[in-house]
């Protein structure tokens, strides 16, 4: 029996990563534009946001069993995935048009329309918030997936989206600096959010491990002492959270630049692990034993030509 692709795979995790990060980049840019001041964010950062979401879309399409029919995911307004797909589309379009205000190109005749820029910033804020939040909402609604179920995963995903988005904003600001930008104060904010991320993940695992059902406790044990524990402790907690936290507090550009890359690494690792954990369903009585006895597809008797 081949277990190939009976659950969501790594491409969906990468979609969650890029989409969440891109959506949160729009939120950050919109808040700064609407409440702090204009021209604080480079064109590069404004383009990278919707670009990240587009890359996420690409991975989502590749994950489908029938990628050429991807347009059908827009068809059921009652499904959360459809809602997410529409919101992501709006966010990408709005994000790119918003970014065009910073590009000196004759065809962009709307560049002087201040009200449109403000309106797009508002649309970016709303759609970006939905795009950054919806992967967590999507996962948290899965009643039969003990590691995901509950509203807490939504908060963790939103926080991670914000952390990775701020890190990418900082990286963009290092590549294309903007004089006097509020982004120059980002490292301290990032360090604080990383601290929150580390604490919240520890709390999440503790709550799951001492959780309401045996299946929830077992799913958390995979992260605490099971097959996912090394990746959680070393890749996510140490390299993706604690090390960049310390590096952001050192006022050296090289350290802070490297820290942004580590944050991105931590963000993608966390999503890969979370999606992998969703393979654990609340199994029915005797089901695990039954499935463990099934052939895996590489047995000799399955390959032999019996005719």
């Amino acid at each position: 029996m081949s277990e190939k692709h009976q659950t969501w795979g790594w491409m969906l995790a990468v979609d969650f990563f890029f989409a969440g990060m891109g959506g949160a980049m729009l939120i950050v840019a919109a808040i700064i534009d609407l409440f702090i001041g204009k021209n604080q964010i480079s064109v590069l950062a404004n383009i990278v946001g919707p670009l990240c979401m587009s890359v996420g879309c690409g991975f989502l399409i590749l994950e489908l069993g029938r990628p050429l029919q991807a347009w059908r995911v827009f068809m059921n307004p009652k499904a959360i995935l459809t809602f997410g797909a529409w919101m992501m589309t709006f966010a990408i379009i709005s994000g790119f048009v918003y970014a065009s205000f910073g590009i000196d190109f004759g065809l962009f005749f709307w560049r002087d329309w201040g009200f449109l820029r403000q309106l797009l910033a508002l649309v970016n804020l709303v759609t970006g918030l939905v795009v950054a939040t919806y992967p967590g909402v999507l996962l948290g609604r899965h009643k039969g997936r003990p590691f995901w179920v509950g509203p807490a995963i939504m908060g963790l995903f939103l926080l991670s989206s914000l952390v990775t988005a701020l890190a990418l904003h900082l990286l963009c600001a290092m590549i294309a600096p903007v004089e006097g930008s509020v982004l120059n104060n980002l490292p301290k904010l990032l360090a604080a959010l990383l601290l929150a991320q580390g604490l919240l993940w520890a709390g999440y695992l503790w709550i799951k491990a001492s959780g309401t059902t045996a299946a929830e406790a077992a799913s958390a044990q995979r992260w605490i002492s099971g097959d996912l524990s090394k990746r959680f402790k070393i890749s996510f907690m140490l390299l993706g959270t604690l090390l960049p936290l310390v590096m952001f507090l050192i006022p050296v550009s090289l350290f802070q630049g490297l820290a942004t890359l580590l944050v991105l690494f931590g963000g993608v690792t966390m999503r890969m692990m979370t999606v992998t954990s969703g393979n654990d369903r609340t199994f029915l009585p005797g089901e695990l034993q039954y499935r463990s006895r099934l052939p895996h597809g590489h047995e000799r008797f399955l390959k032999k030509n019996w005719i």
């Binding site: 081949s2 190939k4 692709h5 009976q6 659950t7 969501w8 994950e63 489908l64 069993g65 029938r66 990628p67 029919q69 991807a70 059908r72 995911v73 499904a79 995935l81 609604r141 899965h142 009643k143 039969g144 997936r145 969703g278 369903r281 609340t282 199994f283 029915l284 089901e287």
Partner: peptide
């Protein structure tokens, strides 16, 4: 069906299968 597997993930009973031939 586009094979997004949302239904497989949503079903708590493991009652659905992704057909590798048809997608």
């Amino acid at each position: 069906c586009v094979g997004c597997l949302s239904c497989i993930m949503a079903c708590p009973y493991g009652a659905r299968y992704h057909n590798h031939e048809t997608g």
